[in-house]
């Protein structure tokens, strides 16, 4: 029997890990929404694709670099590059021609891209579950009857590093400042000499690469992957982005972690079959009482 403190510690870790997945994916939703006001419903499938790219690269590398952290990190980097490029290309080929079209056209296109992605992966994998078998040493830090595994700690560290790097990039580099400016006023950005389409492409690259990291992390953590895994994860991450305030980068981080923690608490209190109810109830409550999200701003269109 676990003590109350041990239960809290365990669920705290579960919540933080789950929240890391949500946050990493929510960032892509929020960045893309901020810059072109598109709810990119294909984003969950980028996460799924990232998981599969990581899975295949990990399998290929297993013979040479082994199937421990070295292989995982390399698989992660490969998935980031492939998905970053994929996100960029989707933006270039599917979305860019519609930037001046009504927003609904973009949204429907995003749903179409989502269908293409997961059906492609379904065909390639025959719709079967794949198992990600690694040889990362078990064990971790033990507190009474609870063990915080090294896997959990490394995944949290990776998430933390990525968030810090992203915050630095958005906050201090000229490219990050351009991204924020584009989300405020595109024509004026062009008058600053900013190639707006290039920055939009960069945003898709970064958002998709972050989702890919979450994909590979979920392989390591859950041990299995499936072409449909992006569906619920995408919706949850979108929920997290809305809770945090869509368009806000710190909001996506906060919303993701918060949703993860609340789901863990809900699971503990009511059982795991209730966790989705818990997440979406939170979304509804949020939309009723603070529709702009925790860190979102009221949008006022000004000329």
């Amino acid at each position: 029997m676990l003590s109350a403190g041990e239960v809290i510690l365990q669920q705290l870790m579960n919540g933080l890990i789950l929240g890391s997945f949500y946050a990493l994916i929510a960032l892509g939703y929020s960045m893309v929404y901020g810059i072109i006001k598109l709810l990119n419903f294909a984003h969950g499938d980028i996460y799924m694709t990232g998981a599969f790219v990581g899975f295949f690269v990990f399998g290929i590398l297993a013979g040479t670099v082994g199937s421990s952290w070295g292989g995982v990190i390399l698989a992660m980097l490969a998935a980031m590059c492939v998905c970053g490029l994929l996100g960029f290309l989707i933006q270039l080929l599917a979305y860019r021609p519609l930037f001046d079209a009504p927003r609904l056209s973009l949204l429907i296109t995003a749903i179409g891209v989502s269908l293409i992605l997961y059906n492609t992966v379904m065909i390639i994998t025959n719709g079967e579950y794949m198992f990600f078998q690694h040889s990362i040493p078990a064990g971790g830090l033990t507190f009474g009857n609870v063990t915080i595994t090294w896997v959990q700690l490394v995944l949290l560290a990776i998430t933390a590093v990525l968030m810090l790097v992203l915050s630095w990039f958005i906050g201090t580099t000229i490219w990050g400042k351009a991204m924020r400016a584009i989300s405020l006023d595109k024509p004026t950005c062009r008058l600053m000499g900013i190639n707006v389409n290039k920055i939009i492409g960069l945003t898709f690259f970064i958002g998709s690469a972050l989702a890919a990291v979450a994909g590979v992390m979920s392989c390591v953590y859950y041990g299995s992957l499936h072409y449909f895994m992006g569906y619920m994860m995408g919706i949850k991450a979108f929920t997290a982005a809305v809770i945090g305030g869509i368009g806000s980068i710190p909001g996506a981080m906060l919303g993701g972690l918060l949703l993860g923690l609340l789901e863990a608490a809900g699971t503990q209190a009511l059982g795991s079959s209730w966790k989705d109810v818990f997440a979406f109830s939170l979304l509804i409550i949020m939309l009723i009482f603070k529709p702009t999200g925790l860190l979102g701003k009221t949008e006022i269109e000004r000329m």
């Binding site: 400042k177 405020l184 600053m192 000499g193 900013i194």
Partner: peptide, 16 residues
């Protein structure tokens, strides 16, 4: 750019 600081606005003026 109303949500960017004065300095950031100026920096973007020299984006190129």
């Amino acid at each position: 750019f109303k949500d960017l600081t004065v300095t950031e606005n100026l920096e973007l003026g020299a984006f190129t």
